[in-house]
């Protein structure tokens, strides 16, 4: 007897459990209305108590110091202090946005959706990754600001001199007195002609592609990229070793939570701890912070 094989979808939608459902009016509409009203009242209150800042009229000849981007971009501005400008300002955010977009195409399992922290270990994973992101970033910022070396000197009388100058900031590694770079290292030709692209206005100059400045490339791009990619992979690998990461979802939780930690720390440092000349200072020494009453 011939058997007719009927193709069936692998996953069928589960039947709707009517008795588990509530009516949108009033149950959901009520919740939405209350939250909207709550926010309206809170924002009115905030607006009553605190004025939007308004400094002096814009003047291109008087530089604000510190000149700061809007607070949600201060994480990028903070990154700019530690690495190549294009890497910090363009490559990192673009790559991160692409990673975000790829999330659901990387983790295609339908397990554990619709519930907070549904996976085993996801809470531990989140909390630890978040903290690694937060305090790891803080440690790196303090190191690269030279504060660590300063404290070592102030508190322990420890001074490494020029040989240990990289403890002060990573940029010191470019200095031939710290690392004995051979003379040819800062101009290694890789094109046999000088390629010029886009001569763009005052100050921008010509972008040339002929020689590689190895120390600069290594210190401004290599080390930061190594830290960002390396630390992320290391953390996921470590969690995999201790059985916290089993699935792609777990790896994403580590990545996302670590990112949130880094993002928060960079934003907080950039907003509240960077003073004139982008030096690290305490928030109470900061003069032009948006939203402080009396500043407007």
């Amino acid at each position: 007897m011939a058997t007719v094989v009927v193709a069936r979808p692998a996953a069928r939608p589960t039947p709707r459990a009517r008795d588990e459902e509530v009516l949108v009016w009033p149950d959901l509409v009520f919740v939405e209305f209350i939250s909207a009203m709550l926010f309206t009242v809170l924002l009115f209150l905030l607006s009553y108590l605190m004025n939007a800042p308004l400094l002096d009229e814009a003047n291109a000849n008087v530089t604000n110091d510190p000149a700061k981007a809007p607070w949600y971009l201060l994480n990028l501005q903070e990154l700019l202090l530690h690495m190549n400008a294009a890497l910090a300002g363009i490559v990192v955010p673009t790559v991160w946005l692409i990673i975000l977009i790829v999330f659901p195409y990387f983790d295609r399992s339908t397990d554990g959706q619709g519930r907070w922290f549904a996976d085993v270990n996801s809470v531990k994973n989140t909390v630890v990754s978040l903290n690694v992101g937060l305090w790891g970033t803080l440690a790196l910022i303090i190191w690269n600001s030279g504060k660590a070396a300063l404290w070592a000197k102030d508190w322990f009388g420890f001074s490494g001199g020029s040989t240990l100058a990289f403890l002060e900031r990573s940029a010191a590694l470019k200095d031939p007195s710290v690392v004995p770079w051979p003379g040819w290292a800062d101009s290694i030709p890789y094109l046999w002609f000088n390629l010029k692209i886009l001569d763009e206005g005052p100050g921008a100059g010509v972008t040339t592609f002929q020689k590689i400045d190895l120390p600069t490339l290594l210190v401004d791009i290599g080390i930061p990229t190594g830290f960002m990619v390396g630390f992320s992979c290391l953390l996921i690998f470590f969690f995999w070793k201790i059985n916290w990461v089993h699935t792609r979802r777990d790896a994403l939780i580590t990545l996302m939570s670590g990112f949130v930690g880094v993002f928060l720390m960079l934003t907080v440092i950039g907003t509240a701890f960077r003073g004139p000349g982008q030096d690290l200072i305490w928030p109470w020494d900061l003069r032009t912070l948006e939203g402080i009453p009396g500043q407007e």
Binding site: L55, A58, N64, A67, A69
Partner: peptide, 11 residues
């Protein structure tokens, strides 16, 4: 204002 001008310059 100065806040706006320099924030957008930096941005």
């Amino acid at each position: 204002d100065q806040l706006a001008f320099w924030a957008i310059t930096v941005g």
